[in-house]
């Protein structure tokens, strides 16, 4: 139980650190959004589950909280990316394909 919790918390902290690194290193908004979403979903998710494993009486509550994070964070990230694309924030120079601009923009 204890070792499982420590391993999960280590995974979460690693992903949060990588997300912070990607926030500095990535060229434009969309790539930064992708890395920070990874950090919030997997990093926060496994950290909270790990805390639940360290203290087993909290496990049910932590699973509920983690499920809520797992449901909400991708939706909010998707909506942020969509709104900034419609607002007209430019992509970086290295981007080669932009499928959303040509196809789905006309559909809705």
């Amino acid at each position: 139980m204890f070792i499982t919790g420590i391993i999960l918390i280590t995974i979460g902290v690693t992903f949060s650190t990588l997300g912070a690194l990607g926030l500095v290193r990535m060229p434009d908004l969309y790539n930064r959004l992708q890395t920070s979403t990874k950090a919030t979903t997997l990093g926060a998710f496994s950290t909270i589950i790990g805390v639940g494993f360290l203290n087993p009486s909290w496990l049910i509550k932590t699973i509920v909280i983690a499920t809520f994070i797992l449901l909400t964070a991708p939706i909010s990230s998707h909506n942020l990316a969509r709104a900034s694309h419609k607002w007209g924030i430019p992509l970086s120079d290295k981007t080669s394909v932009d499928k959303y601009d040509s196809k789905a923009g006309k559909e809705e």
Partner: peptide
Amino acid sequence: WIKPSLIVRTGSKFL
């Protein structure tokens, strides 16, 4: 308003 996408509609109805 900009029309919300299918993911947002389904997610808000579910949550």
